[in-house]
Amino acid sequence: MTQSIIFDMDGTLFQTDKILELSLEDTFNHLRAQNKWEKETPIDKYREIMGVPLTKVWETLLPDHSISDREQTDSYFLERLIDNIKSGKGALYPNVKKIFSYLKENNCMIYIASNGLIAYLNAIVSYYQLDNWVTETFSIQQIESLNKSNLVQNIIEKYGITTGAVVGDRLSDINAAKENRLVSIGCNFDFAKEEELSQADIVIDDLMELKKFY
């Protein structure tokens, strides 16, 4: 029987932390140059909400700014992220390509479902050549609700998935699995929170642990 595994991207496959602070600092320096920010770069606050759609990020980080300012900041931040990815400043988590190869050899279909934007995801997939293993990458941008569970539902409907799992580091990934009757596998990585992981069916500390189940 073919198994389907849907992976989150940030904090699960891609070590976002390596380019996050750099890109966020660039972005807030840009705001400072426009006299639109005076305080320190809110990196800690961003870490707290890591994994939510970017529209929610800027509502949280720039609560007193206009929608126009947030949209412009979002665009600039995305440019910086992509430039840093293409410059090789990011990294995949250990064993991503090894576990992908193993899963493909063992009749598993691999998908990515992420709250990241399409251009950002494409940059990662392209730079690390993940499309050698990944059937398709889905962005939250593709659905109006901006809800991870709905995004996973779209993948299930498109590919006729009946059995499988969602692998991710945050509660939105765990809920996306449960609400779509898939196994939830929590990754105890950089952005994970213990109270969220406690709700997953399985918790792993390294992606190679997936071999135990597939």
Rank of each mutant, 00 (worst) to 15 (best):
Thr2Ala: 11
Thr2His: 13
Ser4Trp: 01
Ser4Thr: 08
Ile6Ser: 11
Asp8Arg: 01
Asp8Gln: 00
Met9Ile: 08
Asp10Thr: 05
Gly11Asn: 00
Leu13Phe: 12
Phe14Trp: 15
Phe14Cys: 11
Phe14His: 14
Phe14Gly: 01
Gln15Gly: 07
Gln15Ala: 12
Thr16Asn: 13
Lys18Tyr: 13
Glu21Met: 14
Leu22Cys: 09
Leu22Gly: 09
Leu24Val: 03
Asp26Tyr: 08
Asp26Val: 09
Gln34Ser: 14
Gln34Asn: 14
Gln34Met: 10
Lys36His: 14
Lys36Glu: 09
Trp37Ile: 09
Trp37Ala: 04
Glu40Tyr: 10
Thr41Gly: 06
Pro42Ala: 03
Ile43Gln: 00
Ile43Asp: 07
Tyr46Thr: 14
Tyr46Phe: 11
Ile49Glu: 10
Pro53Lys: 15
Lys56Gly: 00
Val57Gln: 02
Val57Phe: 05
Val57Asp: 04
Val57Gly: 02
Trp58Gly: 02
Leu61Lys: 01
Leu61Ala: 12
Pro63Thr: 05
Arg70Phe: 11
Glu71Asp: 10
Thr73Lys: 02
Ser75Met: 06
Phe77Gln: 01
Leu78Val: 13
Glu79Ile: 10
Arg80Tyr: 03
Ile82Pro: 02
Asn84Pro: 01
Ile85Glu: 04
Lys86His: 13
Gly88Glu: 06
Gly90Ile: 03
Ala91Tyr: 08
Ala91Asn: 13
Ala91Met: 11
Tyr93Ile: 04
Val96Trp: 04
Lys97Trp: 07
Phe100Glu: 06
Leu103Gly: 05
Lys104Ala: 05
Cys108Asn: 13
Ser114Pro: 07
Ala119His: 10
Ala119Gly: 08
Leu121Arg: 10
Asn122Thr: 09
Ala123Val: 08
Ala123Ile: 05
Val125Phe: 07
Val125Ser: 13
Gln129Asp: 15
Trp133Asp: 04
Trp133Cys: 13
Glu136Trp: 09
Thr137Ala: 15
Ile140Phe: 07
Gln141His: 05
Gln142Lys: 12
Asn147Leu: 02
Ser149Leu: 03
Asn150Gln: 11
Leu151Lys: 00
Leu151Arg: 00
Gln153Thr: 15
Asn154Trp: 05
Ile155Cys: 00
Glu157Cys: 12
Thr162Val: 13
Thr163Pro: 01
Thr163Phe: 14
Gly164Phe: 04
Val166Leu: 07
Ser172Lys: 10
Ser172Met: 15
Asn175Lys: 15
Ala176Gly: 01
Ala176Asn: 04
Lys178Ile: 15
Asn180Thr: 01
Asn180Ile: 07
Leu182Gln: 02
Leu182Asp: 02
Val183Lys: 11
Val183Pro: 00
Val183Gln: 05
Ser184Gln: 14
Ser184Val: 12
Ala192Tyr: 04
Glu195Asp: 14
Glu195Pro: 12
Glu195Gly: 06
Ala200Val: 08
Ala200Glu: 03
Asp201Met: 10
Asp201Ile: 04
Ile202Asp: 07
Ile204Met: 09
Ile204Ser: 01
Asp205Met: 04
Leu207Pro: 01
Leu207Met: 05
Leu210Gly: 00
Leu210Ile: 15
Leu210Val: 12
Lys212Val: 15
Phe213Thr: 01
